[in-house]
Each structure stands twice: as structure tokens, then as C-alpha cells.
Design a protein around this nucleic acid. Structure first.
Lengths: 179, 179
DNA sequence: GTTGTATCAGAATGATCGTTCTGATATCTA
DNA sequence: TAGATATCAGAACGATCATTCTGATACAAC
């Protein structure tokens, strides 16, 4: 997963995957059928191991805008730990590299966006209308994608934090204005 | 350029390029030296043929926030004309696919970001402080990247326009708040 | 008309790709 | 211990990759 995440699908060879997993070609083909099958499995793993924990706070406490700020903070801290410029978001990378040409991946990406959007929407104040919450949540999904893209070219975690702060600050102003 | 733009670097073969250009292998290698050389040349062409015209209004009239809205509108209209889901932004695609592994491309991407940031900053009101304008301009670069990423998975130009409208609306609220 | 120079399509090249096959080694069952 | 079953490293496969080479064709100048 880490290799796909960092290098993308096309630039990753089967030899890279064998080396990175410490497994064998035979086992990989036995378990996943093909390079593409392994990629899809990595996509699932990413969802469970990276996305789900990050979205967990959104389920536990609703209507808590701070959860959104936490989400960005945690993701940036994670990127910083891995090293910047970093791999960004596996789904974000798949969006630009594969989504248009691979319907299966395209569907997974859209599903991920919906999930992220729902999580963001649930964190927004109950006082806002559903359509309003939806609109802001969509904006946050877009902002998140932009942030991971930037994280692939910048070495500065501080810049990412500043960007996230701007996003959150703008969001709060929107909410205040609606109230 | 169009082939690289749509399919990315790795997924584009020399055969694809020969077919798309109507040229010959020999000519391509004679003029650009390698696939990579051609890609860099396409990057330059993209800058001149796509980015420069889009940024032109920013040079002509400064401190005009409407220029930012126009920028998004024009780019979305262009994407709609090409067909959605579309190729997004060549630079944005290069950011996720190549920037981390190819220093030359990484530098070009950063340079593009700076140029975009400067353009956005120049459109913001003179009443704002330089640091404030810089911060908002950086946000807009991030938002633009997010928007082109979304444009690679959505078939709806209307959704893109709605997203752009949200961004502009938030920006205006920020500006009002600062005044 | 002949010679020199581009330009051309397409074959050749070595490398690498994803995928499969081949035995050898290890692990388990009885 | 004997036999069946996984698991292993690595060779082999055809396809495709970027790149180079080969002649043939078209056009230039003299």
C-alpha cells in the first residue's frame, strides 16, 4: 500500500511490490490475481487503516466543528511523521491518475468523497440547513484534496497547517454568518 | 500536450505521442531528445497556451476580485467544452504524478504555484495587508487544485460552478470581514 | 540529371513490464 | 518416517516500453 501510495499505480512495478511486501510473486497472484487486484485491495486497506480512524471522531460526536480542525491537524501531523513532501492521499492520487480510465477505481473514489462529505456535514452545526451543510461539506472535501496535493510538493508542515487554519477560519466565518 | 494532459506521463507511450502528433519517432527524438524532454516542452506550451491567457486579466486590471471569479468560470467552461470528467490541470496532474520524483518537474510546479498565487494576490483589494493577501492567494491556489481534481471525477459542470461559487462567496466574506 | 540532404515508415534493440511456470525446500498429516 | 501440500526463489514468457537504426522516398541545389 505504501508503495502505491507514494509512487502511484503505473510507476510501481511488480518487482517493487514483491520487494516491499517481502512476499513472493506467486503469493501475490494467488491472493489478489493481478497487480490491479492488489491495488484495489490496497485501496480498501487504506480506507480501513487510514481513512476510517481519521473519520472516527466524526461518528462519535456530531455537530462539533472542532472535529474538522482536528481532522486536518491529525492528517498533517501524520504526513509530517512520514516525511514531507509526502505521498499525500492515496485516494487523491488515484483521482488524478486512474479515476478517469478505470471505472472500478472511479467508483471507489466517488464513494470515498461521499463518505468524507457525510462526515464533514455531520460535524457542522445542527442549526444550519441540510443543503447548507452539504454545500460546506463539499467545499471541505475539495479543500482536503487541494491540501493533499500541496503536501506532495511542499516540505513545510507549517505551510500546510497555515493553509488548514485558513480553511477552518473561513468555515467558521461562514457558520457565524449563517447563524 | 493533450495526451499527456489527459493520461499522465507514465500511461502515455511513445506510440501514443507519434499518433497524436502525426509526427514521427525520429522527429520527436530529434527535436526533444526524449519522452521526458517532450513532456517538459508540453509543460511550457501548457503554460503559454492555457495558463497565460487565463492569467492575463489579472495583469490588465489589478485589485479586481471579480477577476478571480472569472478565472474559475472560464476554466470550468473550458473543461465543459473539452468534456467532463476531463483532464483537469496538467500542472495539477504533474503535481501528484511526478513532482516528488522528478526535481525538474517539481521546480516547474512550484514556479507555477507562485505565478498563480501572485496573480490571485494582485486581484485582491489594495486595502488588505500584503500578508493577508498572500494568505488568501495561497488558499485560492489550494482551492484551484482541489477544483481540478474534482473535475477529473465529476461529469457535472454545474457542481464545479457551485463549488467555485462557494469559494468566491467565502472569499468575499473574508474580505468584508477584514475591511 | 545527379548528387546531397531531409523526412519518412517501420524494423530492430535491449530493457522492463505483468504474468506464468518450474523445481526445490519447508511444513504438515498419518 | 512417508507422503501430500504449501511456499519458496528464480527462470521463462510474450508483450510493450523508450530508443535507435535502416533503407526508401521526396525535395534541394547545381
Amino acid at each position: 500500500m505504501r508503495v502505491f501510495w507514494l509512487n502511484g499505480y503505473s510507476a510501481t512495478s511488480m518487482a517493487d511490490l514483491v520487494e516491499a511486501t517481502g512476499s513472493t510473486r506467486q503469493s501475490i497472484y494467488g491472493d489478489f490475481g493481478s497487480k490491479h487486484g492488489l491495488y484495489v485491495a490496497c485501496f480498501d486497506t487504506y480506507r480501513e487503516a487510514v481513512v476510517a480512524p481519521a473519520l472516527d471522531p466524526f461518528c462519535k460526536a456530531q455537530h462539533r466543528v472542532a472535529a474538522i480542525a482536528d481532522y486536518f491537524d491529525i492528517q498533517i501531523a501524520h504526513a509530517e511523521r512520514i516525511g514531507l513532501p509526502g505521498p499525500g492521499c492515496l485516494v487523491g492520487n488515484a483521482t488524478t491518475e486512474l479515476a478517469a480510465h478505470d471505472p472500478a477505481i472511479g467508483a471507489l473514489v466517488q464513494q470515498h468523497h461521499r463518505r468524507l462529505e457525510d462526515a464533514f456535514a455531520s460535524a457542522l452545526p445542527a442549526s444550519l440547513s441540510t443543503t447548507r451543510r452539504c454545500k460546506l461539506a463539499r467545499f471541505l472535501v475539495l479543500a482536503a484534496q487541494g491540501l493533499w496535493a500541496v503536501s506532495r510538493v511542499t516540505a513545510s508542515a507549517e505551510q500546510l497547517r497555515a493553509q488548514a487554519a485558513t480553511i477552518i477560519s473561513m468555515l467558521k466565518k461562514e457558520i457565524e454568518n449563517d447563524a
